[in-house]
């Protein structure tokens, strides 16, 4: 058994790692979008309606990455 096998042995489906990888980016992205929206609403509460719409668009685009990442993991298994 060489060093590479000992250090980086993986058994099972590599796509399971993909779920986690696909979740990291959108998690950070949605956190930033929501955090900035909270900041903005705290500054200007009267703009809450506009800001939630913009927040929705931000969330939609960010979460699309997660859906595609997770789904393609299953397609190419």
């Amino acid at each position: 058994m060489d060093a590479t096998t000992v250090l980086a042995e993986i058994s099972g489906n590599i796509a399971t790692v993909g779920y986690g990888l696909a979740a990291i980016g959108p998690a950070i992205g949605v956190a930033i979008v929501v955090g900035k929206t909270i900041e903005s609403i705290a500054r200007q509460p009267e703009l809450a309606g506009r800001l939630t719409v913009l927040m929705y668009i931000g969330i939609a685009f960010t979460e699309a990455l997660a859906f595609i990442g997770i789904a393609t993991g299953f397609i190419f298994v």
Partner: peptide, 14 residues
């Protein structure tokens, strides 16, 4: 994007 860009929301409507 199309729906939001067409939407009319007042700046201080709330």
């Amino acid at each position: 994007v199309v729906i939001v860009s067409r939407a009319r929301i007042g700046n201080v409507s709330d």
